[in-house]
Design a protein around this nucleic acid. Sequence first.
DNA 1: GTGAAAGCGCTAACAG
DNA 2: CTGTTAGCGCTTTCAC
Lengths: 301, 301
Amino acid sequence: MSMKPTIYTLAKQAGVSIATVSRAFNSSTRIRDTTRARILEIASEIGYQPSASARNLSLQKTETLALVFPQISGPYFSEFIRGAESVTRLHNYHLLVYSSPDANEEDPLLRLLPSRTDGIILGTHYCSYTYIHQLYQQGFPFLVLGRIVPGLMTRCLRPDNETGAYLLTRHLIDLHAYQKIAFISGPEASGFSAARQLLDLTDRPQAIFAANDQMAIGAIAAANERGCRVPEDLAVVGFDDIPTARYLQPALTTVNLAIFDQGVQSVELLLEQIVEPDLPAKVITTPTTLMIRRSCGCGEV
Amino acid sequence: MSMKPTIYTLAKQAGVSIATVSRAFNSSTRIRDTTRARILEIASEIGYQPSASARNLSLQKTETLALVFPQISGPYFSEFIRGAESVTRLHNYHLLVYSSPDANEEDPLLRLLPSRTDGIILGTHYCSYTYIHQLYQQGFPFLVLGRIVPGLMTRCLRPDNETGAYLLTRHLIDLHAYQKIAFISGPEASGFSAARQLLDLTDRPQAIFAANDQMAIGAIAAANERGCRVPEDLAVVGFDDIPTARYLQPALTTVNLAIFDQGVQSVELLLEQIVEPDLPAKVITTPTTLMIRRSCGCGEV
DNA sequence: GTGAAAGCGCTAACAG
DNA sequence: CTGTTAGCGCTTTCAC
């Protein structure tokens, strides 16, 4: 098996210097069209591909971004990464993914991120201040999701949860005239037991507002178990608008977070920062929109 | 702002040669413990991190794997990548993700994968024979998911769909004694219209076996629309066991594909191949298990 | 338009 | 145990 061809192999084959080969592959004008064509021709013949490692070292950049998420699963991550990947691809960038509930300077993998990437998106639940501070001091481009880092002049992307929650609550109050609305929040499987407790109350709520759709699903299951019909006897609304929300029985009223959009915007913001490191601090919000379906008590939509 | 410290900076600060610094960072025994400790100490003081690009170039490896998926979204991808990431992390490897419905040698991003990674997992729907053949010829480690590549001695990972489908069908026939079972297959939103057509038949099926859970959800929605109760009037079963399957009303009977496991195994197989390039061709199957719930007509489980 | 040569930061013989 | 030195494959001035 022959050695993998390098720039030298190709240069020799084409009867040119390695500088010329380099020019042929990088959109340089300082090369004759016919020369480039010939080099590219031979390159594909012998199966030459420039080494990314060598290029990275020479150029001092990796054309790679890292995405750190608390848990690599669930619809949130899924949509986010889809958006993020579409943009990295557009810019000929690459995307590394990591799962880490809290970003910590102790994590060996996170430590090496700055040497492997040109920027980091931190979507973790917790994020050690030390770690962020280290990145900041190094002048390394990063973006923390959903949280404003105290005392640091950084940019930040977060969904406009307040507006979404406000509009949904107003909907419950104004349109359905519910007086007793319970709000439940917690880990993604806790909706069932929370709703159970609420349903066992003598003074039952008329509506349950769950902090996320998974909890809302759990709440609906609990209601069914208690022989309580949704939405006739109890309204249940969620938050996130996961893909299956619309297929549930009843279809779930919830708040859409434009997660794909968040992925897109995160990457765009980060790429901006990479090009222009000294951008002013700023909070960018992504829109949240009401998805009125059946579980709140509304008719077919 | 001072320059980013390199191995030279650190060597000078510590009063040693760069070779010694290198040894301190790579588990080499040919270095005194005290020396290593001192170097590591100074390193963290000045914030030195070895350059991955330089390391990659020198070592001729990237410690990175690529995962190419048809669509970066949906529960399948989500679970798979979670499994994959857990193993890459375990081996101090990194994971790049790409979305591409068909892997083609024309795709510029896919072209450069061999220069950026040590191995590729191809989970695409279609995969150009030329592309695979090129990888094969280069002796580049790769793994095609769910499909045996004709004429090429490669290893392959696929779920044991046959057994899963067989067992589920037997369950419908043997336990529930259904005589008329319809099978529907197609894109993930097509379950609704397919089921509609079946329900409009004068000779309605007793059960619908959907090729995936999303279609099953659509089928259930169509049944509801027609005033047809599931499972009393019509049994509906799916395939995949997506996370929400158990929360549906009725809870969906389906086949679990151990997707997390597939992610884990893919990475493990690929890493094996990287270490030992000439492994014999072989088809590795991951288990499929029946998830009997309510939608097939069974009682509470 | 093209070539020669220095340099990117690290690893790995080899010598001591 | 530690230092010297030659690469790894590419980009980029600087000559010509």
